[in-house]
Design a protein around this nucleic acid. Structure first.
Lengths: 234, 234
DNA sequence: GTCTATATAATGATAGAC
DNA sequence: GTCTATCATTATATAGAC
């Protein structure tokens, strides 16, 4: 799915004048300036964070900065549309064959058709925007739903706190990627996608080890903690 | 350890004029303006991030903004001194009775004498500064050293990739806290310390479960992955 | 050592020409 | 619809008075 296909109100077919671009298959360069601006903004925000200036965004879209105000009214409104577009893309993005808490993220990172989506989401969370919180909560809900079916299917161990476990795995996984992003402040978007790929490769073995056996040699700490909170081990 | 005790060059005893504050026990309000400015900056940066203005910092220290230039030359130089002070404090901070990858962070969060240190570190990592990278690398080295002794002592399971495991645990743990921070953009420093406390309480059970048994019901995925990379399971 | 006032730079917002 | 030019705001850097 391309960004331009997201179900927002400004798809070219909706607001382009009738005498323009009647062609059904519209390459990205033929998008309306409005749609190009939004796509350029998503890429700039993903690449530089939300401090990217309107002039930078306009330059990337090949138009003037004044057009941003004309089409969106303000930088904030432009960002809101970007949030909405990426959120819609994330909601409709289906990953196939989920096998581990990390595989969904890995699939986003690998799939080029998701473009800057994953990095935009990381920036949103890092930035503390409401959209970032929405992404996190959505992913936690997904992880919880998946874990319930996976527990029933005998793939995952049951937990005494399934929601807490989902929160822990999602916040730590996303947070780990944010740290990777923060460790490379000057990296380009394309290069960071490669870094994400390497990160998933490099952490695959420790992750699978952790998810298979944990890190503790025995269950002493768990037993002690369960006694401490008055929940009998079983 | 208080911030003012960090081994930097501007401790009151070193650069305060001889005719001032000859008392041995110096309360924070009697620190030199330079030291007060640095401490105020650390708190402002922890509370608001590094976009905190020099005016805000000066106001918190009870002096004028021009004094920052007089003492430090620039905001960047002031920040460098803050980085150095927190890094020194972190290096010399010893946590006792390490029992899990999380307990060091939990102890920082609980111990009030560490003040804004942990949050400052989270902000540094989130911000992508070189100091943030230094914090991460230092923590990874610590975690690796600890894990080696803990494996020998039979507390932790051995790993096929001990350094990768240390990186994974540190980046995900720190990242998880950064996500918690990002989910509350408007929170005060004091309130966030309480949130950290609650976070450690809320994630204790899922964390210990994860670190004890992992999440997978069996070792299928690990065995498959080891076959895939040509490393015979054992 | 400390303050006030000002210079400079960057950015978002805005108005009007074409 | 699009551009150029300008304004307003904010933040840091700087200079000089006390």
């Amino acid at each position: 799915m391309r960004i331009a296909d997201a179900p927002t109100s400004d798809a070219p077919i909706d607001d382009a004048p009738a005498d323009e671009a009647p062609d059904a298959s519209i390459p990205p360069s033929d998008l309306t300036a409005r749609a190009r601006l939004r796509d350029a903004a998503i890429e700039c925000f993903a690449a530089e964070g939300f401090t990217a200036s309107v002039r930078t965004i306009a330059a990337r879209a090949g138009v003037s900065a004044g057009l941003i105000r004309h089409h969106f009214g303000s930088k904030e409104a432009l960002r809101a549309e970007c949030d909405e577009a990426v959120l819609a893309m994330h909601r409709t993005a289906k990953v196939e064959g989920l096998t581990s808490p990390l595989s969904a993220l890995a699939q986003y990172a690998e799939a080029d058709e998701y473009g800057a989506m994953l990095v935009y989401i990381l920036r949103s969370v890092q930035d503390g925007s409401p959209a970032g919180a929405a992404f996190i909560e959505h992913m936690i809900a997904d992880a919880l739903a998946y874990s319930e079916t996976a527990v029933d299917a005998g793939i995952l161990r049951p937990s005494r706190d399934p929601e807490g476990r989902a929160r822990l795995l999602v916040t730590n996984s996303i947070g780990g990627l944010i740290v990777q992003l923060s460790l490379r402040p000057e990296i380009s978007l394309a290069d960071f996608k490669a870094v994400l790929h390497e990160t998933f490769e490099a952490t695959a073995l420790p992750s699978i080890e952790l998810y298979t056996h944990g890190v503790f040699a025995d269950s002493t700490y768990l037993d002690q903690y369960l006694l401490y909170i008055g929940d009998p081990p079983g």
